[in-house]
Amino acid sequence: MKDTPLSNNERSFVQGAMKSGLRVDGRGVYDFRRIRIAYQPERGHVEVQLGRTRVMVQVSCELTKPFPDRPAEGAVQFNVELSPMASPAFEPGRPSEQAIELSRMVERVVKDSNAIDTTSLCVISGEAVWNIRVDLHALDHDGNLSDALCMAALAGLIHFRKPEVSMPSLSSGDESVAGNLIIHDVREREPLPLSVHHMPLCVTFAFLDDGEHMVVDPTFQEERVAEGYLIVAMNIHREVCAVHKHGSVLLDASQISRCTKIAAIKVAEMTELLQKSIDEEEQLRANRRAGKAPAAAKSNKSTIFEYQGSIVQ
């Protein structure tokens, strides 16, 4: 189905508001919407909400043969699915251009910045490595999918645990070791977390009037009236992990450096939130295991963390 057309009234109102530093949802120009992270009972299953934008991630793994040129490295795959549930403009079936752009974006931010240690995914060099699959689904689209997806991918990868693997005794003189690997059930041996070196997160900027007016975390309508976007991915150490520019806006170097400065502040806030939510989630899980949980029934519920930092609603 075609997307809902944007009326002239909406266009001029959103543009006028952006130009006068006012935003349609009452936020400030540099404010993010409310971030909500919900960890589901299953490992690697996380839902991230950014205002009315909602995405879901499921991380899974599988033992595969490594690429011949990199025998000691595992693989991480990102797959972004934009279903019609999120927006009527999304078509089912083959991934759209936008879906490919987004999954490549997440890949650049999370994988190409070496956030995930791929060598630690190796089980037997040249024989068996873990292939981590990160499935990202957009559930509701109200703009800025990229920031929500990056955050979800990272949260999913940190939350995920890979099962432990052990080698059978080699006394039998088997030829193929990889075929006889024992993958331990999670109840048998505690599964292991992936090693995450740093937490790169993105911040999206939308521009109007050749970059004269700018907003952080654009909504769907702001995205539609904007002339272009700049996505800056960064970690808490102020290392820029990726920069992605989209649209026809011309920016000069000073604007980009200004954006990275703003991104640094936003990323610091978001990292703090993500770290805090993960710590709390792990604490809850540990309590549950130790039998200190308030109620047994609670173990089936997701644990939700909300961030209400700079939100006016």
């Binding site: 006028g16 508001a17 349609v24």
Partner: peptide, 20 residues
């Protein structure tokens, strides 16, 4: 739902109040 008021600030307020 189309909304209008005297100032854009009021329009934003109305939009958010209705949606919330």
């Amino acid at each position: 739902t189309w909304i209008n008021a005297q100032t854009p600030q009021q329009v934003v307020l109305i939009a958010n109040a209705i949606q919330n």
